[in-house]
Write a protein that binds this DNA or RNA. Structure first.
Lengths: 338, 338
DNA sequence: ATTTTTTTCGGAAACGTTTCCGAAAATGAA
DNA sequence: TTCATTTTCGGAAACGTTTCCGAAAAAAAT
């Protein structure tokens, strides 16, 4: 399929290709009348610049890569929507990759994006990612990178975080104020900073209220629905039943709720639940799940802004960490009926 | 950031750039020893070809665009995963765009992808899309396109469909066999073929069983949860209460269920529900929703194969429509308790 | 009228890669 | 040994666009 080139326009108008180029690129050294003639003819001929020729000569791809761990729920898609909003406005194209919660795929995605000579990357780690050597190398090479949410503290880059600690603290307090006496925490994957922060918030809320947390109240889990199911089974089999559960993720909570219900427990009468990260389905399950909501779109927008700032920085770049806040959406799953 | 080019390798090895290029491209006219030397040196120097120079000279982008209506649920992400599997294997890059269920955004996405000189497009229409002139123009220009699921019959392209008719028929029969007497249908958006097919399946199942469907049993709706909520409110306010509801989408069903429950109706005792398109949350709500499951990953794979076939076709291309089948996942929401 | 300055254009080179074709060297056949 | 064939390499041109710089014409200043 033959595309119209600026050579075709030049020939049609008996002008040099450099004149055509000047018309398109708002140069000072072209007569307004000539420019208008060129723009009209180009439109008439259906001209569209060849992006590859432009990227080649400009030495800049204007591509941004996004690497997310999965995109089946709404969290990551919403972050992407926020990021794209900012990036499109700044003239970037966005190459989206997802890692199926798999480290190997994640590294392949990064490699693919580098092959596309992306100007920068926005990344959230899969829960499998423990080895960050590849990222260290990337950063030391000067590639602009912003991590969000699932980050690793050893990477000296800009980061967009959510105040996991604070909101885990508030969520736990909410349960304590509801007079729940035996609150369990289903944790996230141990390698992520956010798991530690959510756990710390949980523990510190107890400490503030002079409550003790026995080790048996901390159940290692993960973010998927099946992980919540498994944790719930473990609890039920232990016969050490809590009156409330704070889960590190909404899907974890939903999975656990399902199992408790299946075993005859009533929610929240027998076991109350609070989740984290406000999955779209939280309000639609029965009973609706209390959940900490993260500002997904804002996370995306912020990450994009930090990345652009890094790409366009001409001096010494200083990584920045921005921590966003959220809200606790209190619903039936955690309301003590007195 | 300075990238290594083949000129750098040529200089290092005292060879011509055409020799370096021949080494990388498996040409017959290079001595194996020379080739090995070049490949080793390239690796040692961290050489990576410039994709834009390649795309420019090859006159081929190896980019495929995907346009989906939204990506907050799991349906479209799963289709994408299936498509990417096939496309990556064939050496293509995939540019994903989503339209926020908005026609204007959809057209902007198509435009953006054309600017990127995509070799072809995989598209599912937003529910707002009524005017298909832009697509007709695209097709008449010879751009390879495959539509899936949400299609318009006037577009003479390859399509990947799901047998909406058949499965709407079976889903409705399932309700009839459960001895539901007053079955309502919450329809999808009128402009889509699939809405008509699902409706036809619904009607024909009644016809087979010599049951009449009064017009009042057909409630216009759409695919979003809020649409289901609205339809449910309308039904409740009409005081013409069905004993079963077949909804054109899972989210529609879930939204409607929520409202009926809120108004004191029991599911499925008072009103049973069947959804369509197997959203990930279907099995996790209470009660779990009976739903027609589509083979999402397979839809993506099939669409990708059809597109590649069209792109690589050297003769007269004949559009193909492939219709995939599914299954009915029967769960508690539709089981009559006798 | 002459000189200086400004405007506007064209041509050449660049970007990194691929391909084509000719040339030289090596190998095989007469 | 000479002639024919094969192998392997290098140089030039191409892809479509952008930028730089010089030249010519027009406008302004002297």
């Amino acid at each position: 399929m033959k595309h119209v080139t600026i050579k075709d326009i030049a020939k049609e108008l008996n002008l040099a290709v450099s004149t055509i180029s000047r018309a398109f690129n708002d140069k000072y050294d072209i007569r307004p009348e000539t420019k208008q003639t060129i723009l009209s003819k180009a439109k008439e001929m259906g001209y569209r610049p060849n992006p590859f020729a432009q990227k080649l000569i400009r030495q800049r791809s204007m591509n941004i890569g996004i690497v997310i761990p999965e995109f089946i729920g709404s969290f990551f898609p919403e972050v992407i929507i926020g990021a794209q909003e900012v990036l499109f406005k700044a003239g970037y194209q966005v190459l989206i990759t997802q890692s199926n919660e798999c480290y190997k795929t994640e590294i392949e995605n990064v490699e693919l994006l580098e092959q596309n000579m992306v100007d920068g990357l926005i990344i959230s780690l899969s829960h499998q990612t423990k080895n960050i050597d590849r990222y260290k190398e990337l950063v030391s090479r000067g590639t602009p990178v912003v991590f969000f949410n699932r980050v690793n503290d050893e990477l000296n880059t800009s980061k967009v975080l959510f105040d996991d600690y604070e909101w885990a603290f508030f969520a736990t307090e909410h349960l304590i104020y509801q007079n729940y006496k035996k609150i369990f925490h289903l944790t996230g994957p141990a390698n992520l900073s956010l798991t530690k922060n959510r756990l710390r918030g949980f523990l510190d809320a107890h400490k503030k209220h002079r409550l003790k947390v026995p080790d048996s109240h901390l159940i290692p889990s993960d973010f998927m629905l099946e992980d919540g199911e498994r944790a719930a089974m473990k609890i039920i089999e232990s016969e050490n039943i809590p009156d409330a559960i704070f889960a590190a993720g909404d899907l974890t909570a939903i999975g656990a709720m399902k199992i408790f219900k299946k075993h005859g427990y009533k929610i929240p009468e027998d076991v109350a639940f609070v989740g984290f990260s406000e999955h779209t389905i939280a309000q639609h399950i029965d009973p609706p799940l209390t959940s900490v909501a993260q500002p997904t779109f804002e996370i995306g927008r912020t990450a994009a802004k930090l990345l652009i700032a890094q790409i366009e920085n001409t001096g010494v770049f200083v990584p920045q960490t921005i921590t966003l806040s959220g809200q606790l959406n209190i619903r039936s799953s955690s309301m003590k009926l007195t």
